[in-house]
């Protein structure tokens, strides 16, 4: 199993807490890698409860949003629960504009996310 390059994973009980290694998610190649590493969490590793912590993310493109949407769909298909946290205001507005606040469960911080998983 190769070590992921775009994300870091920490275990909290049966919950996987994922942080992003890049502060700007715009590079096309990196977005492809990010997508695959996220898909692996549910398709290969069968993780059932995942927190995506956006604390390190300062910027992301619409291509990155597309990957997150695909990941949400795959997670739903595998019955995995997904919660997003620590989204800074500028990024949260991107989710608002694109109506993705309706698609994702979003909590302020990890503690709130862990409480609902």
């Amino acid at each position: 199993m190769s070590t992921p390059r775009r994300i870091s994973i920490n275990e909290s009980g049966d919950i996987s807490v994922v942080t992003f290694n890049d502060s700007k998610i715009i590079d096309e190649q990196e977005i492809q890698e990010l997508g695959q590493e996220l898909y692996d969490l549910v398709e290969r590793d069968n993780r059932a409860k995942i927190v995506l912590n956006f604390g390190e993310v300062e910027f992301l493109s619409s291509a990155a949003l597309g990957k997150l949407i695909s990941f949400e769909k795959k997670s739903r298909g595998k019955k995995a629960k997904l919660v997003l946290t620590n989204i800074r205001p500028e990024i949260y507005e991107v989710f608002m504009i694109t109506k993705l606040t309706k698609l994702f469960t979003i909590k302020d911080d990890e503690a709130d996310a862990l409480a609902v998983l």
């Binding site: 493109s61 619409s62 291509a63 597309g66 949407i69 695909s70 504009i97 694109t98 109506k99």
Partner: peptide
């Protein structure tokens, strides 16, 4: 429509929505 399933990974719709915002 960028919210349609078949367009989830399309750049155009969501990108334009953001530009206009």
């Amino acid at each position: 429509d960028c919210t349609a399933d078949e367009n989830l990974e399309a750049l155009g719709g969501r990108g334009m929505l953001l530009i206009r915002a």
